[in-house]
Design a protein around this nucleic acid. Structure first.
Length: 867
RNA sequence: GCGGGCGUGGCGGAACUGGCAGACGCGCCGGAUUUAGGUUCCGGUGACGCAAGUCGUGGGGGUUCAAAUCCCUCCGCCCGCACCA
């Protein structure tokens, strides 16, 4: 073995491209659009990337996880579809165009070329022939066809909605472009402005989107819970309040409430600043108008509205209570959302915390109407905490004495009987506004004609292409400004008409790309046989930040596509399995001036302090945070692959922690992973000359050491397999570290041990192959020359008989405290185990001759002796 | 504000259905090898204690023979909130 000891190091830079080419030549990862049925199908998909410039560690993590699944499932005998594409429309391309004068298309396609190259270096088992970008008319033209089919099916509507309006730039701003209520470029105070926009009718599927969550048993429970809350089904009542004196044709206000039982505890009625009645009031009351104007600068995000200080304006109007005949003041309140319910509420401060704070602030009455159980009505008062739980009704006329659920039923009956209200089911979910006043998106394929109204673009005229020559230096909607693009003849009457200049929300692009991947070159949006055979996606992997919107929109889209004949997916569910990965984080660094520094600019010294690489100036090490360009705590995957190879990056990313949690990228961790690749290579290359040939006959007998090694081998196969099935990749890595150590420790001689060593090494290589595919091929070519590619081998099965242990270790507790362990034959009977336990030296000392009251024995695990 | 999640040694984490807390890796300490080392190999490493042992899974309380795991409560951090993707 001495001449082997100086075997050259494993050189990933040389080996990795070689194996990537070998897989490519062998066509290892290709599957037909329509499966031939010889193997069961498995569709693995990672959320496709936005082509922002370079790949980042979040991508590396995402695609490594997916690749492990894809390679593992392929070895398990599945026909695995594993495609890749580009979520290529979006705001950053327009920003780049404005800032650097690059056309969005040029910027996007250049980024795609760069990122494709980076992904290819990772050695992912992707089928690149399915690649597409959503900004390609060959993709978005089909999306326009889907839009038209949805329009024909009544799933598209035009409605008014609020946008963030920059009054200086005359531009609609995205939420992220509004900073502290001001436009990010102009600095002007942003206003809420109503625009007529296109909506997809997701609420038509609200019931099914909610109910079907229960069938998604391979989704994280928390994602299902978040979607459930987002859809927000609630039962309640609509109640109409007559205005004491009508105003501008309004003679009543309708409110929605989930607590109709508390109607007798009413103290005020509050209108949204965006309510039609508010507008009527503001038209004649300058103070009300001023208050509404103030509210309009709060922006359009729910978080902003909800966290703002609760404020109101007393309109001086009053409404009449439906039952007790009293009148109550009408306020305009900044926390009442027009988008939910009816845009008006009745306030019951005793039993709603927000109402209570509002009432205390403005000196409104607080009447308790629900009495907590076991409390005397005389002794019950509401101070600064509203009572929101169930109890018994008081001060409530015909509801007195009823429990909350019965009171709800009773008052709804009464409201319906008297025609003053009705029980309703209310949804929080709103229709999906897809209109965007931007250039770099999919044009909405309709034409506005003065005579014919809204006319769909005939399908044979699709795609409606974006014009190339746009002026992005002007604020506002570039398509609207374009000198010629929007002017067309009406397809119906031929008169001069205008194209719709809004483009679609980029979430539309990502709501059906997984279906397009199944037949990416089809002349229609989907090829039914391909889509029906491959969908649903068996395993979808991506960030938790998409837990609601992207996933919900996709679930809507597959239902709408099914109902317009584009899919046969009966369940309507696009993703049978979902895994949400955590973020990749890194330490942050700042110099004495407080400027952020890249990790490559910082050197760590042995005493733990950090200095600037170039100047030696001290550097402050800050918190571990999500990698971001602004904080410069990013690590370039390309540089890591240059230095250590793709396998090392993949191995570290899998080993650090459970994939659903945030991970910290550390230089020490990568170096540790790299050492392991070299260690495995040494282990294999040093052992090969001593091993029997690949496929040699099994020896008839095995020594104790050989048996022990085989037991470890078969246990490891079982453990790694179980870990891969449950996404416990860090556990699989730990078991493989242990396995490699166990192989190195089995130093004995003999042909039986040599055979067991070959069995172990072959297993090691095949078990880590999904994670480090290049190193696996390199080792395999040494272990089993001419035996093909690991990528084409089937998975290993473990032999339970070989994995079984002869003895088990039992922990022995006395009074719940560990006092010793005993080794007993596997399957020993209880009497034997207890006798051995009580005889154990340390245990006997702890018992000290006292009588044992109770003996608890959990076979194979523990004995607890209670004195 | 609302909804969801997380919290275990110096660090990342492991721990099956409530059954030996700290697997495995990083770091650190000691030793060996090497001309050299960001090399390799061996040993050690939760805290306190000479030891027996005691304490220990964000804080406090509870259930149980037995709790990281179940229940109550408090604290801290993270994600989403509909025009970022």
């Amino acid at each position: 073995m001495d001449q082997i000891a100086d075997t050259a190091r494993y050189d990933p830079a040389q080996a990795e491209p070689r194996w990537q080419q070998a897989w490519e030549r062998a066509g290892c990862f290709a599957v037909p659009d329509v499966p031939d049925g010889t193997r069961p199908k498995y569709y693995v998909l990672e959320m496709f990337p936005y082509p922002s410039g370079r790949i980042h560690m979040g991508h590396v993590r995402n695609y490594t996880l997916g690749d492990v699944v894809a390679r593992y499932k392929r070895a398990r005998g599945f026909a695995v579809m594993h495609p890749m594409g580009w979520d290529a429309f979006g705001l950053p391309a327009e920003n780049a165009a404005r800032e650097r004068g690059i056309h969005p298309a040029t910027w996007t396609w250049d980024n795609i070329a760069t990122m494709r190259g980076e992904l290819k270096r990772m050695g992912l088992s992707l089928e690149w022939s399915r690649e597409f970008a959503t900004c390609d008319p060959a993709y978005y033209g089909h999306q326009q066809a889907l839009f038209l089919d949805f329009l024909a099916a009544g799933l598209v509507e035009r409605k008014e909605a609020f946008v963030n309006w920059d009054p200086v730039d005359h531009t609609v701003l995205a939420n992220e472009q509004v900073i502290d209520g001001r436009g990010w470029r102009s600095g002007a105070v942003v206003e809420r402005k109503k625009l007529s926009q296109w909506f997809l009718s997701i609420t038509k599927y609200a019931d099914d989107l909610l109910a079907a969550l229960d069938t998604l048993d391979r989704w994280p429970e928390r994602v299902r819970t978040m979607q459930r809350n987002w859809i927000g089904r609630s039962e309640g009542a609509r109640v109409r309040f007559a205005l004491a004196s009508p105003i501008d044709g309004h003679d009543s206000v309708e409110v929605f409430t989930t607590r109709p039982d508390t109607l007798f505890g009413m103290s005020f009625l509050a209108l949204s600043p965006d309510h039609p009645l508010t507008a009527a009031i503001a038209a004649r009351d300058p103070k009300a108008a001023a208050f509404v104007q103030e509210c309009s600068t709060l922006g359009t995000t729910e978080a902003a509205l909800e966290t703002a200080e609760k404020r109101g304006h007393d309109t001086g109007l009053t409404v009449r209570h439906p039952f007790n005949g009293r009148t109550y003041p009408v306020w305009i309140a900044n926390f009442v959302l027009m988008e939910y319910g009816t845009g008006a509420i009745f306030g019951c401060p005793a039993h709603d915390q927000r109402d209570l704070e509002f009432a205390r602030k403005y000196g409104l009455s607080v009447t308790p109407v629900v009495l907590p159980k076991g409390i005397d009505a005389a002794g019950f008062a509401v101070a600064d905490t509203a009572f929101t739980e169930d109890g018994t009704l008081i001060n409530s006329d015909f509801l007195d004495g009823l429990e909350v659920p019965a009171a709800k039923r009773r008052i709804i009956e009464e409201l319906e009987r008297t025609g003053q209200g009705t029980g309703v089911v209310q949804w929080r979910l709103r229709d999906w506004g897809v209109s965007r006043q931007r250039y770099w998106g999919c044009p909405i394929p309709v034409i506005h004609c003065d005579a014919c109204g809204i006319v769909p673009v005939p399908k044979d005229q699709l795609p409606v292409r974006l014009p190339d020559d746009v002026d992005l230096s002007r604020p506002g909607n570039p398509l609207d400004h374009h000198p010629t693009w929007k002017h067309v003849a009406c397809p119906r009457c031929g008169a001069p008409a205008r194209r719709e200049t809004d483009t679609m929300d980029t979430f539309v692009d990502s709501s059906w790309y997984f279906a397009r991947f199944t037949a990416p070159h089809a002349a229609t949006p989907t090829h039914r046989a391909a889509a029906d055979a491959w969908l649903p996606v068996d395993q979808y992997i991506g960030g938790i930040e998409h837990a609601i919107l992207h996933l919900l929109y996709s679930r809507f889209f597959t239902r709408a596509m099914r109902d317009t004949g584009h899919l046969g997916l009966a369940s309507g569910e696009p993703f049978a399995g979902l895994f949400t990965q955590g973020m990749v984080k890194h330490e942050t660094y700042r110099d004495a001036q407080g400027r952020w520094l890249y990790p490559t600019e910082v050197a760590k010294r042995p005493d733990g302090t950090a200095v600037h690489v170039g100047t030696g100036a001290p550097v402050t090490v800050g918190a571990v945070e999500a990698m971001s360009k602004s904080k410069r705590n990013t690590v370039d995957p390309g540089a890591i692959i240059d230095r250590y190879g793709a396998d090392t990056a993949r191995w570290f990313i899998l080993s650090d922690n459970p994939p659903e949690r945030d991970m910290e990228w550390t230089e020490a961790g990568v170096a540790g992973a790299y050492r392991f690749t070299q260690r495995v290579w040494r282990l294999v290359s040093a052992a090969v000359p001593t091993l029997p040939p690949h496929g040699a006959a099994v020896p008839t007998t095995f020594s104790g050491e050989a048996r022990a090694l085989r037991r470890t081998t078969h246990r490891t196969i079982a453990a790694v397999t179980a870990a891969l099935e449950t996404f416990a990749f860090n556990v699989a890595v730990a078991r493989l570290y242990e396995f490699a150590s166990a192989i190195a420790d089995a130093k004995g001689e003999g042909t039986d041990l040599a055979w067991a060593r070959r069995e172990a090494l072959e297993a090691l290589v095949r078990l880590f192959a999904p994670a480090m595919p290049h190193l696996a091929e390199e080792c395999w070519s040494l272990l089993a020359p001419g035996a093909g590619l690991v990528a084409q081998l089937s998975w290993l099965d473990h032999d339970p008989a070989l994995a079984a242990a002869d003895t088990v270790t039992i922990a022995v507790q006395v009074m719940g405290r560990l006092r010793g362990t005993i080794e007993v034959p596997a399957g020993a009977d209880e009497a034997t185990v207890l006798a051995a336990a009580e005889a154990e030296e340390n245990v006997a000392r702890a018992i000290a001759g006292r009588p044992i009251r109770k003996r608890i024995h959990v076979p194979g695990k523990i004995v607890n002796l209670v004195l």
